[in-house]
């Protein structure tokens, strides 16, 4: 594995979008990994939260946008709560989802079948509304 790094890879429209949408400064993250260490769903992620930020720091936007991670995050805010640098990964994650959904890079997470299933389930309303807002935009 090799990454040939160039200066212009580090200035990217989408990267800027991530920063403005999330309100977070990517370079503020010093890669302590605490966000990943405390995440309750990290087991299921293909790229752990701190690595997502690292990849963004290295300009690797595509890899991040196509990751499973951003759809697994449960928005529990534990990462943000304990980050020593005040970086909210949860907000970065929301921003990444928003970018994917708004630019239609992928279809909404819950498809037509899923929607029927969701509507029929006995899950509380707020869970359904929450999921649709987070995962379908």
């Amino acid at each position: 594995m090799k990454l040939r790094l160039t200066a212009d890879m580090l200035v990217d429209e989408v990267l800027e979008r991530v920063e403005t949408l999330s309100g977070q400064k990517l370079r503020a993250c010093y890669q302590c990994g605490r966000c990943s260490a405390g995440c309750p769903v990290v087991e299921e992620m293909d790229i752990i939260p701190s690595e997502v930020i690292r990849l963004l720091q290295l300009g690797q936007v595509d890899e991040v946008l196509s990751s499973k991670t951003i759809w697994i995050c449960a928005s529990c805010l534990q990462c943000a709560s304990r980050c020593p640098k005040g970086v909210e990964f949860s907000s970065i994650c929301d921003a990444l989802r928003a970018i994917v959904l708004r630019t239609r890079l992928a279809t909404p997470k819950i498809d037509a079948d899923g929607l029927t299933r969701v509507m029929m389930s006995d899950a509380p309303q707020m869970g359904v509304v929450g999921a649709l807002r987070k995962l379908n935009g």
Binding site: P40, V41, E44, W71, I72, A74, S75, C76, Q78, K109, I110, G114, V118, S121, A123, M126, G127, V128, G130, A131, L132, K134, L135
Partner: peptide, 15 residues
Amino acid sequence: TECCGGFQVVNDEEL
């Protein structure tokens, strides 16, 4: 104070 999985249950029950 840990997370129960929240709204993810709707999409990914296992989680």
